[in-house]
């Protein structure tokens, strides 16, 4: 069973003349241990797709199933619980909290009400495994971008989520640090990883590369994915009927 399954996702943003259908029947399946890279130009809807997959926003149409539970039918409170237990986010700007040390930042999701019990142990292990022990006591502004992003990845993993969603994880990093971060994301065992980026280097570490173009996900060869083609055909037929 896939960790993440999205079917016919549609999303329209803006209003009036500025209204734009940014996602138009997106289908996606991601298995445990699989790394999927979604590439697209700026404004193509990559981040919107990531937000929908992570339960931060709701699609106008379609359904998303995460770890066997449908996200689109959940209340905001239940969605928060789903994110807490099943999703880890990695952001382009790291989003570490300035008042907390690196270790405290990593621990924070594990301290949220409803989080699992092994958070602290897992946090220490992650800090050690990711080579962050030396810098764990420092505040974010004392760290390099690469160190901050590695701490952010540790934070994303602290609740042992099945799905890691990374939004331009190397966007604010130099080439060397970017490569380190991508290697880390590549090696997240058992987890499904979706990376949205406009940097081709990210594609090199992915099991599958998809392109978001005109609201649709295209396979690396420029064709719609098999599920996408089937759904699009059905929609065209419906509209012409």
């Amino acid at each position: 069973m896939p960790v993440l399954e999205a079917r016919g996702i549609a999303k329209t943003l803006g209003a009036g003349r500025a209204q734009r259908r940014i996602l138009d029947g997106v289908d996606l399946e991601v298995q445990a241990g699989e790394v999927v890279a979604v590439l697209g130009r700026s404004g193509s809807g990559k981040s919107t797709l990531l937000h929908l997959l992570g339960g931060l926003d709701s699609p106008d149409a379609g359904r998303i199933v995460l770890a066997g539970q449908e996200l689109t039918a959940q209340t905001p409170r239940a969605l928060a619980k789903m994110r807490l237990r099943h999703v880890g986010f990695v952001f382009q700007s790291f989003h570490l909290i300035e008042e907390l040390s690196g270790e405290e930042n990593v621990l924070l999701p594990a301290r949220l009400p409803g989080a699992g019990r092994d958070g602290e142990r897992r946090a220490r292990r992650l800090i050690s495994e990711l080579g962050l022990s030396e810098i764990a006591g420092r505040r974010p502004h004392e760290l390099s971008g690469g160190e901050q992003q590695r701490l952010a990845i540790a934070r994303a993993l602290v609740n042992d989520p099945e799905l890691v969603l990374a939004d331009e994880p190397t966007g604010n990093l130099d080439r060397e640090n970017g490569a380190t971060v991508l290697a880390l994301l590549r090696n997240l065992r058992r987890r499904a990883v979706v990376i949205v980026t406009h940097e081709p280097e990210a594609a090199a570490i992915a099991d599958r590369v998809l392109h978001l173009q005109d609201g649709r996900l295209l396979a690396d060869d420029g064709r719609l994915s098999a599920e996408g083609a089937r759904l699009r055909t059905a929609r065209v037929l419906r509209e012409s009927a």
Partner: peptide, 12 residues
Amino acid sequence: SVLRAFGAGPSA
């Protein structure tokens, strides 16, 4: 918002 993204609900 980061806390909420990581699953912080109303009580958190």
